[in-house]
């Protein structure tokens, strides 16, 4: 009896062995040799701007981003002004991804014919797997030059008075596929300020985020708090913007409402004159188009 059972077992054993030798084992065979890799988080934001300010995104290496930023006039200016449609503040800009961690760009602003140029470094990249990093951190620095005529031609004007600078630390985390948040402390330096009570060095603390409502549409918000006592001679407010990102292939459209009329950091961080509760709100949009300038070497065959 026992023998028979053993014989039966012996007969069926090879079958068990062969099924165990089947695909599951093959799969574990390939998985066994798999090295744990660093999985970098991608697409924390859809483009290089959260709404009006910088997001941690850089154009991919070898890619050029053409960015048109347009803010209409204030909504509360009435029908006479077509609720702001007759006015415009505009910036035309180019962003380029030189490497995975370094980008640069330049823009021309209608506000005081200002040219701005910037560098953006990726210091840390959010990742999981072999290396866990909770956040992505970028360092952003720009210089802006007003190139319009001096307001007062008769006084002694210095070239350095045309220059302003800003430095930002961008800290972001993609919490889930649909939710990303960013904190942005900023520092602005102006060589020339309107009144002696105004500070040349101005600090703000801001942040924002996005929630995806579908694969290609997200709702974004951005806020920058300007600490009091720094800009005194002009009545200024904290900048708040609320927008929608719509992505279609190579384009991203960002349509938003903001109380900031200016498009570059120095203006919206320190010179936001609109007040949401007064209806000093500007309708605006960003249109981005990505161009691949340099294709990765491996793919050139």
């Amino acid at each position: 009896m026992n023998n028979k059972l053993l014989i039966l077992l012996a007969i069926i054993a090879p079958f068990f062995v062969s099924t165990a030798n089947g695909q599951d084992e093959l799969l574990s065979m390939i998985e066994k040799g798999e090295k744990q890799t660093i999985e970098y988080t991608t697409a924390t934001f859809k483009t290089t701007r959260m709404v009006i300010g910088q997001s941690i995104e850089l154009p991919p290496k070898g890619n050029l981003l053409f960015l048109i930023t347009h803010h209409f006039g204030a909504l509360n200016t009435g029908y006479e002004n077509l609720f702001g449609l007759k006015q415009a503040s505009i910036r035309l800009g180019l962003d380029y991804g030189l490497t995975r961690w370094l980008g640069f760009g330049a823009g021309l602003n209608s506000d005081r014919n200002t040219w701005d140029g910037f560098l953006k470094f990726k210091l840390l990249r959010q990742s999981k797997g072999a290396r866990v990093m909770p956040v992505t951190v970028d360092l952003f620095a720009n210089t802006a030059i007003y190139t319009n005529k001096w307001a007062d031609q008769n006084r002694k004007n210095y070239f350095s008075s045309r220059l302003t600078y800003s430095v930002q630390v961008l800290i972001a985390r993609k919490l889930s596929n649909s939710l990303s948040l960013q904190i942005t402390p900023s520092y602005v330096h102006k060589n020339l300020v309107p009144a002696s009570a105004d500070k040349n060095d101005i600090f703000t603390l801001g942040g924002g985020g996005r929630i995806k409502v579908s694969d290609r549409v997200s709702i974004n918000a951005e806020y920058h708090h300007l600490f009091t006592g720094q800009v005194v001679s002009t009545k200024v407010y904290d900048s708040f913007s609320l927008g929608v990102d719509i992505e279609t292939g190579g384009h991203v459209f960002q349509i938003f409402l903001t109380n900031s009329y200016g498009e570059y950091e120095q203006t919206f961080l320190t010179d936001t004159r609109g007040k949401w509760s007064n209806g000093d709100i500007f309708l605006g949009f960003n249109i981005t188009r990505m161009f691949t300038i340099v294709t990765p070497k491996r793919l050139r065959d």
Partner: peptide
Amino acid sequence: NSALDFTTGGFVFKVLMKSFEFEKALMQE
């Protein structure tokens, strides 16, 4: 990654989606 058991014909593949490389970085994203 792929493996074949020549005796049984068992044949498996495993492909990491993020390892696909596109000419346009945006397409890849």
